[in-house]
């Protein structure tokens, strides 16, 4: 991985413009970059606040892990049974149309536990992407390779371990990256269902205090989480998918 200069320049430009604006507007509209930096530093260093940031991260990973298991199972089952696919595919499409906010309302009415509500909301909103992606990669498993494996008469488990799993792994990685990119939008909304800790809760607090610097800092924490976790998946990808040919010519 190589660090390009363009994103650094555009990032610095954004920071510069913001700083410029902070000279002309009151701090509750455009706090100075230094003020935001101070808040960010506090979040990343003060125990209580760190716990808040970690809580949100844990919720994201917990919800997505659930969605991965359930969505993955649905995706594989769709791949194995065309009948099941015909029934479940429209429901997944339907699900994709439901806004996160609707799941917030529904889960408040349905469930009592705040943590379960959040988990459920993340589960429902990230599940379709897992199911679709894993279904696609299951369907794409080469028939040639299946026949080749079958000619050795493997056990079911050996077939899964040596052929199915490596074949769907790239799709699983892609699904995680895509979902990590989307989940930050959902988790904050989910945390409005009465969480007493976490990024969503903190944002709500800052809004009530008109504390723009805090709000921005908490937002940055979330962005940071997404970037780091996607980077982590990319790292796994380049390790596990290192067998893939790379083309010298790129367009």
């Amino acid at each position: 991985m190589r660090l390009r200069k363009e994103p650094i320049i555009s990032g610095l430009a954004l920071i510069g413009l913001w700083q410029l604006a902070s000279y002309f507007f009151p701090p509750f509209l455009f706090p100075s970059v230094a003020a935001i930096g101070k808040e960010l530093l506090a979040i990343l260093t003060q125990g209580e606040l760190v716990v808040g940031a970690l809580a949100t991260s844990a919720r994201i990973l917990g919800g997505m892990a659930g969605a991965f298991v359930v969505g993955g199972a649905i995706g594989l089952w769709m791949g194995r049974s065309a009948g099941f696919e015909r029934y479940i595919h429209p429901l997944l499409i339907f699900n994709q149309g439901i806004p996160a906010l609707s799941w917030v309302v529904i889960s408040i009415i349905w469930f009592k536990s705040t943590e379960f509500r959040i988990w459920f909301i993340i589960l429902m909103t990230t599940l379709p992407a897992f199911a679709f992606q894993i279904h696609d990669s299951y369907r794409a498993i080469s028939k040639d390779l299946i026949e080749m494996s079958m000619s050795f008469r493997p056990s079911k488990w050996d077939l899964v371990r040596t052929l199915i799993w490596p074949s769907v792994l790239p799709g699983i990685m892609t699904a995680w990256k895509v979902n990590l990119g989307n989940v930050s939008r959902v988790v904050v909304v989910a945390e409005l269902v009465g969480a007493g800790i976490g990024v969503g809760y903190e944002l709500l607090q800052r809004q009530q205090l008109f504390d723009m610097a805090g709000a921005i800092a908490w937002t940055l924490v979330l962005v940071l989480f997404v970037v780091v976790s996607q980077g982590f998946v990319t790292m796994l990808e380049s390790h596990f998918l290192r067998y893939r040919p790379t083309s010298e010519r790129q367009r």
């Binding site: 080469s142 040639d144 390779l145 026949e147 080749m148 000619s151 050795f152 008469r153 040596t162 052929l163 490596p166 998918l241 067998y243 893939r244």
Partner: peptide
């Protein structure tokens, strides 16, 4: 017939990750 038949296919059918 496990282990009794070996097949060389028309195309190589190697597992790309191995």
């Amino acid at each position: 017939l496990a282990g009794k038949i070996g097949v060389v296919f028309q195309n190589d059918r190697l597992l790309p990750w191995r």
